[in-house]
Design a binder for these strands. Structure first.
Lengths: 223, 223
DNA sequence: ACCTGAACACCGTTCAAGT
DNA sequence: ACCTGAACACCGTTCAAGT
């Protein structure tokens, strides 16, 4: 608003943590995780690669900031559902959907589960479990299981997206994995063969939700 | 047994996939994930770094082989517990314990959830869910939730071990994270503050088991 | 205070050359 | 068939030098 409050504020192209993180997010979204290098980022920002280090400690800090930027915005948008179980579902689904559109967030969550952005998730989920009637001592195990499941799904979704990225031919994505599995002896691995057929035609989101409901049902049963 | 069946079998120091993978596991266990480089591995095997590529496609293949080696041995040792729920607990705990002693396995599982070694887990867990009375169509969502939770725990344990690796001073490990969390406004994040106290004195293994029982209870309730 | 960009210390991977 | 090791094409990070 008021100009010249800070010496750098006037310059249009001035570097800042926000601009760096925003550019990093653009690269991650459009070209994938492997495309984010300090050289590529510096080139996009028309600056030297060393300049980034004035605003961010290292690449880990950059990735953490990018994750927080995306995730905190998403968490702010989650509509408050009436029932606690509905709200928990809404929170989990919004994180799940974010990772499906931004797989690098899933990779980051799997590598660094105690991301600052996760504080928001912990807080909101705890409140919902409390509203469900879970007692003070039992909230932590419930939230822990909830978040653990979320991170597991994040890891899986991110891994699937990475495979999709290099093999552009659709059937090869999940096909080769299922194929490898079914190559095992059917007598020794009967269930793997049974499951292989179901894996092909399942909806990731639906299965994720089904698993989530298992946890919620378990929490309810333990009341 | 019979000598000279293969020309290379006689030589003591001869390179092989098994020897390479075994050395890689030694490095990972003793010096951590970052210590495993092709140069360090070649040095330990008294060979050139290029020689490894004759036996394994690339570093991903090496890590996959190392993971399978450790995990398949563990799965073979899981004692068959009488009740299905007990067997599921035993399988999950043996994987959990493996990751606590070999954190790099957790990292690998989080990055590549469809590791060949996981086939064993899928097969055995499906059999147990079936024994619990879960119908054919419901086995996949149940196993999926089970494995997703396992992978989430693996990611979290591996991340904790990575932090422990660089900061040798104990309180700093989880302390700094909890500290960061409690720095948020208590009015805005009441549950995070409540949880922070519980996080400090909890037993990882116990919380893991509690979360697992939530899923098992949910599966039972859905029968 | 903030930025530049060459330089450093690494990586995984390849490949001509050896045995 | 199997191994060697220099070379290639990258990385993240540092830091003297600039403005």
């Amino acid at each position: 608003m008021s100009p010249k409050t800070k010496p750098s504020e006037g310059r249009v192209g001035a570097l800042s943590k926000e601009r760096i993180v925003s550019s990093a997010i653009d690269i991650l979204n459009s070209d994938g995780e492997s495309a984010l290098t300090f050289r590529a980022l510096a080139r996009r920002l028309s600056t030297g690669s060393g300049a980034i280090y004035w605003h961010l400690a290292d690449k880990d800090a950059l990735l953490a900031a990018a994750t927080e930027s995306v995730l905190s915005r998403v968490m702010a948008e989650v509509a408050g559902a009436p029932a606690p179980a509905g709200a928990l579902r809404a929170i989990a689904l919004s994180v799940f959907d974010t990772i499906e559109t931004h797989p690098w967030v899933g990779t980051q969550l799997a590598r660094e589960p105690w991301q600052p952005a996760m504080v928001e998730v912990f807080e909101r989920c705890s409140a919902q479990f409390a509203a469900m009637g879970v007692s003070g001592d039992s909230i932590f195990p419930c939230v822990s299981a909830f978040v653990q499941y979320l991170i597991g799904a994040a890891a899986q979704t991110a891994a699937a997206a990475r495979h999709r990225f290099r093999a552009s031919d659709r059937p090869a994505i999940l096909g080769t994995i299922v194929e490898q599995w079914t190559q095992r002896d059917p007598a020794e691995y009967p269930f793997v063969h049974l499951l292989a057929g179901q894996v092909r035609h399942h909806d990731e989101r639906e299965v994720f939700l089904a698993g989530l409901d298992l946890i919620l049902a378990g929490a309810k049963a333990a009341l």
